[in-house]
C-alpha cells in the first residue's frame, strides 16, 4: 500500500502537472471571478467563501479522469487487481494520492486566494478547516466516479455528470461553514456535518468503488 502511494506521488511529481495543474486552475477561476461580477470589494467579500469552495471543487474534478485511466491504459490496473492488494485498498490509496497532489495544495493556497477576493478576516481559519475536512471526501467520491467510467472512452464528461451531484451536500456544508466563519457566526454545525459526511464517505466509498472497478475489469 505504501509503495503504491509513493509511486503515485512520484509519478505526479515527475509526469508533468500533478501538483501544479489543479492549483493553477484554481487560481484562474479565482482571477476570473472579479472579471465576471465586477471589482466591488464588498460584493467579492460576500461571495468569497462560496467562490473559493466552488473553485476548489472544480479543481478537484479536473484531474479525476486521469486517476485510474492511466493505470487502465497501460495495464497496471489488471496487474494490481491480481496482486495481493485488495482493490478497495488500491482505490483508497489512489484517492489519498489524489488528495495529496490536488486537495492539499488547494487547502494551503485557499487563504492566499481569499485575499484576492477580499475575504473577511475572521473567515480564514474556518475556510481552511472546512476545506481540510471536505476535500478528502471529494477525492474519494471522485475515485468512485473514476472507477465507474474507467472503461468508457472519453468518459471525462460523463464522470463530471456523475460526480458533481454527489458533491452537492459537501459543497453546501463546506461553503456554509466558510460563509458563517467569514460573517463571524458559529460554524460548528456545518463543520460537524461536513466531518460526518467525509467520515462516512471515507469508510464506505472504497467498497462501492472497488465493486464497480471489479465489474469494469472483467
Amino acid at each position: 500500500m505504501r509503495a503504491l502511494l509513493l509511486r503515485d506521488l512520484r509519478l505526479a511529481l515527475r509526469a508533468g502537472g500533478g501538483f501544479g495543474l489543479g492549483l493553477a486552475f484554481f487560481l484562474i477561476v479565482i482571477v476570473l471571478v472579479p472579471f465576471s461580477v465586477g471589482p466591488a470589494a464588498e460584493l467579492l467579500g460576500r461571495i468569497a467563501p462560496g467562490v473559493l469552495w466552488l473553485g476548489a471543487l472544480l479543481a478537484c474534478l479536473l484531474s479525476l479522469d486521469r486517476l485510474l485511466a492511466v493505470d487502465w491504459e497501460d495495464g497496471a490496473l489488471d496487474l494490481l487487481a491480481t496482486s495481493p492488494l485488495p482493490l478497495e485498498g488500491v482505490l483508497a490509496i489512489k484517492a489519498v494520492a489524489h488528495w495529496i497532489t490536488t486537495g492539499l495544495p488547494l487547502v494551503v493556497a485557499a487563504p492566499v486566494f481569499g485575499v484576492l477576493l477580499n475575504l473577511a478576516s475572521p473567515g480564514y481559519g474556518v475556510l481552511v478547516l472546512s476545506l481540510l475536512l471536505g476535500t478528502p471526501a471529494l477525492s474519494m467520491i471522485g475515485a468512485f466516479g473514476a472507477a465507474l467510467t474507467v472503461g468508457i472512452k472519453r468518459g471525462g464528461l460523463l464522470l463530471s455528470l456523475l460526480v458533481l451531484p454527489l458533491y452537492v451536500p459537501i459543497l453546501i456544508f463546506g461553503a456554509e461553514a466558510a460563509r458563517r466563519g467569514a460573517e463571524g457566526l458559529d460554524p460548528t454545525t456545518p463543520l460537524l456535518m461536513l466531518a460526518g459526511i467525509t467520515g462516512v464517505v471515507l469508510a464506505l466509498m472504497p467498497f462501492a468503488a472497488g465493486a464497480v472497478l471489479r465489474v469494469n475489469l472483467r
Binding site: 452537492v168 456544508f173 456554509e176 459526511i197 466509498m205
Partner: peptide
C-alpha cells in the same frame, strides 16, 4: 450510492 447522496442532499438543502 446516488440514493444515499440524494437523501443527504435533501437534508443539506433544508439546512
Amino acid at each position: 450510492v446516488g440514493t444515499v447522496f440524494a437523501v443527504l442532499s435533501r437534508y443539506a438543502v433544508n439546512f
